[in-house]
Write a protein that binds this DNA or RNA. Structure first.
Lengths: 238, 238
DNA sequence: CAGTGGTCTAGACCACTGT
DNA sequence: CAGTGGTCTAGACCACTGC
């Protein structure tokens, strides 16, 4: 505990650690402000300021009269913001997912480094196809650290739902709290072209994602490919 | 003034309006907290809370011992985040800009609606080429409301610098405070292919941007095109 | 040194929630 | 109704800036 930092920042850091280590779970209330004030032996205003910063960072949310709760991160849908998912009639499609492969394998060098694995360790490889529209699919190659996810290879694919992050939390207690995505364009190879229903050489959008827990440790590496002509991404800059 | 809103929110709204109408200018200090407390006839803590929200939204910044200042928005560089701008030696390139055309013209329907112009009004059309690397250029088509920017067509192009937003502020007092960008991929037409030095049909990244002032009113419509094979975009999701 | 924002406290009162 | 967070106040003391 760095005593040079203001009290409210030290309290903030401690609260963040309690979320990261799972002492406070998503959608569950944290102790009341007066209880925290007593526990940390500070005035309520100081606790409020610490809570304010975490609310500002979207890690907590307040509900007047009920309490303050841990935010459950919700961005499994982030990928779908990238692709048009509205059909001619204006209906939204919820993409379905199909797991093609799930096995222990030796990850490529870049994936190994990204996940922070040592040289000799295997990882769980998960290949998946997602169907946004009849003629618009996404191919995903996913890598997970075997240390935490090895049991996945023995899980029947029926037990894994359409969305992976809720499944990670339910089955392994791993909560994805943030992610970094890198977006590039490349020409489709023969295999991708066949899978995506386009000509070889047609442009393909490649989205690489590293998903991390509250503590910043990498949980998942994911590489998704889809046809570029159905791609649309919108961003607000402030 | 809606008296149902908390005091600090009403003060926040009023301060925002003072920024929007230019009473408080970028990089200039606003009145001290105690002065604002007297002016609004509230306690300093209430002013602090109002200022806190504006600092949180990045519209103000504090400097201890000096004062609180209006943030000068800085995202003219936002476009460059999209394209690789580091050469083989690791040096960063500052793109240069060349204005190709600057005239009054009738804007396309979509541009007219985006800028909120009525049917009969012209707009300033600005075509520009930006050079990121020797073989990587961007073509920009820019539209500006004639009501505020008509004098631009009589301005020598030498007076316009490499960056447009600082010029808008210096010459017209218009400050760009936010923007929305939409990113899609399309096949290069003959003209774009020639300009960008690629084969017709090659993939091109299209970035449409609407730039707005502090008050949310549209200031500029901009459409930029560049070769997709040099494109890279990185985003953090939290 | 005077003046600024930064931190921390203490307490009053209000608005909302669930029982 | 009791308990929660939401608003607002008032004031003490600290740390930094510029003259």
């Amino acid at each position: 505990m760095d005593t040079r930092l203001p009290l409210y920042q030290r309290i903030r850091d401690d609260m963040l650690a309690r979320i990261a280590r799972g002492e406070w779970r998503p959608d569950k209330p944290i102790p009341t402000e007066s209880a925290l004030g007593q526990e940390y032996d500070v005035a309520i205003g100081t606790v409020r300021k610490a809570v304010d910063t975490l609310v500002g960072d979207n890690l907590l949310y307040r509900s007047q009269g009920r309490g303050t709760f841990v935010r459950r991160p919700q961005f499994d849908g982030a990928l779908f913001r990238f692709f048009r998912q509205v059909d001619a009639a204006g209906h939204r499609h919820v993409p379905t997912s199909r797991i093609i492969r799930c096995e222990l394998a030796r990850p490529p060098e870049t994936v190994r480094k990204t996940l922070g694995l040592d040289k000799r360790s295997d990882a769980v490889r998960l290949d998946r196809e997602r169907i946004i529209e009849a003629d618009n699919r996404i191919r995903e190659k996913i890598w997970l650290p075997a240390a935490r996810f090895a049991a996945l290879v023995d899980t029947p694919v029926e037990d894994v739902g359409n969305l992976l992050y809720p499944f990670y939390e339910q089955a392994f207690g791993e909560v994805v709290a943030s992610a970094q995505e890198t977006l590039t364009i490349e020409a489709a190879g023969a295999e991708d072209a066949a899978c995506l229903g386009i000509e070889p050489g047609s442009p393909v959008v490649v989205i690489e994602r590293v998903a991390r827990g509250y503590d910043g440790q990498p949980i998942e590496y994911r590489c998704s490919r889809g046809r570029a002509d159905r791609f649309r991404y919108q961003i607000d800059i402030a």
